[in-house]
Nucleic acid binder design. Structure first.
Lengths: 338, 338
DNA sequence: CCCCGATTCGGAAACGTTTCCGTAAAATAA
DNA sequence: TTATTTTACGGAAACGTTTCCGAATCGGGG
């Protein structure tokens, strides 16, 4: 690698001081517009760009923000990240994306790395197992800007952006009820996840509201992957305990379960109807098409990004709100009893 | 944000010089193991971590590498990135992930940003429209370490890691031929992509080898998204020009086309058989399951990362090879005429 | 006891910027 | 004209490290 060309070279070339060159690039008042123009022009010719590393050192700002997600195999998080990038790039920030791979230890390490890299703020969606929040609490105590989304922890007092899981779970279940189903089961997500609780509450309350049974024997902690859905379906089939409809925590769960039922000769939606919760784009491509709650992923990302920017700027405690986003129910064949 | 604790604080606390503290952290020989131990211990107690920004300034190494991918909506690139991270993190590098969103202008801007951030190297997979390689050539001329993968440009003399598209396309087509199909069409990808050419050649050569017709009227430049597949299928259906089997450039194309055929009353694989090329994980969840070529995504990422590390270390021109990876054909119902 | 090499450490320059402070020149006011 | 403010710029410190160079200490061989 050749020696890169620095501010000194430009200063020497134009026989002026480095402070002047710096001022030209930072667009400060203390400079003649004419000289500024000249410097910028000549610098461009010389191929000079300020070294952001050195630049950030005295500035105590890195214009870097860290994003930690539990995975990006499913389409959900990548799309949120796309929304985040959209906003952040415009605001002059770079986004450091890291995946904890659903591993709490990884997660902590990554956050420490990001902290050591002096990121100006952090956007995080937790592992479904994350329990120990003490380190994050200490970060917050040190006034470090953090915004949570999707997989949030209620213990942490930061801005949060979540989807209204409760309402839309209820909506999905009511759709199943409207279709004439009364024996409805719920395949739930991992127990300690916030979203799991909310979707489960939505299920329970919707059932109660219509006077339908929904004891613990109708709720199964299935998990998060399609294999989990298949596994839980298999158990159901073995015991012969088949409901009319199943509301699933997410799409992979639903798709795994549907696959399993189909392989055992059940027809969907005739024998068992399904509703999922979209964290992927495959719902429309399975057969039959999977009715599913759609979340505004891109918008979610943008909201999160804007909140963090605001938090970095003002550190205003009033930002520690919980923003609840709306979605919609995409009705497809898997839930329709025509 | 409170003032962060620096090397000076540690030095003062232990009443030694900052150079000694620095040496302790950099594990250099010029230090008594005993003092080193003490310093490290006390520094940990004080909660000191070296500021990587400042650290990298005199070092002329950032331990940052940039990864530019055209998208990460499909599962393919995220998985490759997972492989890259795996290796890079172990080697002490951070990975800056950026998506060009299939936009050539974006791509160029991102690369310049990454360059300005002094990344130690670049891993890139090009936009399907990327044509102007002059800037990348200039980077290479300046001895900047670049590794290409998947969507590579043959104009650029760098290490490349690609999948053996030619061979596996041929393999996929031969599978269709073995199943008794003779009128086979190809839904190709965007024209200027390297991989498009290779998969197309695989198709053509396999057809020729078995004495089957494969003129230009059997090859359709469909695109890259499921909508493109649906669109192309629609055109075929309108003209009534239906082949026995279709070999698709990728899975989304195949899935979109299958959907379209199904909606028009065709049965798959009875009326039309399908084979795709996996850049996603949905092949097994559509109905019927989509026969598809599987690429070793994780391994690809790891190989790419190792090559870049080697390139950074040695700048050895011998590394400018093209690594060709192997895959496998996952046979599912969409192509089986039992 | 002296000299020399090895070991361990401190001082200071360097990395490429930004920014504070001061000053000369220019512009304005008296 | 002189006094005062404004404008434009240069010098230098600072940011938090690494690293070069030199010095002090120590041990051992002569």
């Amino acid at each position: 690698m050749k020696r890169t060309i620095t501010i000194k070279d430009v200063a020497k070339e134009l026989s002026c001081s480095i402070s002047t060159v710096s001022r030209a690039f930072n667009d400060k008042y203390d400079i003649n517009p004419e000289t500024r123009r000249k410097i910028l022009e000549r610098a461009r010719e010389m191929g000079y760009t300020p070294n952001p590393l050195a630049r950030r050192l005295p500035q105590h700002q890195t214009f870097l923000i860290g994003v930690v997600v539990p995975e990006f195999i499913n389409a959900f998080f990548p799309r949120v990240i796309a929304g985040i990038q959209e906003i952040m790039l415009k605001a002059g920030y770079q986004v450091l994306i890291m995946s904890s791979n659903e591993d709490e230890r990884n997660e902590l390490e990554i956050v420490k790395k990001l902290e050591a890299y002096q990121v100006d703020g952090l956007i995080i969606s937790f592992t479904y197992r994350s329990r120990d929040m003490s380190y994050f609490q200490s970060l917050i105590d040190r006034n470090f800007p953090i915004v949570q989304f999707n997989r949030v922890s209620s213990k942490l007092n930061t801005p949060k952006v979540i989807f209204d899981d409760y309402q839309w779970a209820a909506c999905a279940v009511e759709h199943l009820i409207e279709q004439g189903n009364s024996r409805i089961y719920h395949f739930a997500g991992p127990g300690n996840m916030w979203v799991t609780q909310n979707r489960k509450r939505g299920f329970v309350d919707a059932m109660h509201k219509h006077g339908l049974p929904c004891g613990p024997e109708t709720i199964f902690e299935a998990g998060i992957f399609s294999e989990d859905g298949a596994e839980t379906a298999r158990r159901l089939i073995q015991t012969g305990n088949i409901p009319q409809a199943i509301f699933c925590f997410n799409d992979p769960l639903a798709i795994g379960a549907m696959q399993e039922f189909k392989e055992h000769g059940y027809e969907i939606p005739r024998d068992v109807a399904f509703v999922g919760f979209t964290e992927s784009s495959i719902a429309r491509y399975v057969t039959p098409g999977l009715t599913s709650v759609e979340q505004p992923t891109q918008e979610l990302g943008e909201k999160v990004a804007r909140l963090l920017l605001e938090l970095i700027r003002t550190h205003h405690p009033l930002l520690n709100q919980t923003l609840v986003l709306n979605g919609k129910l995409n009705i497809r064949r898997s839930s329709l009893r025509k």
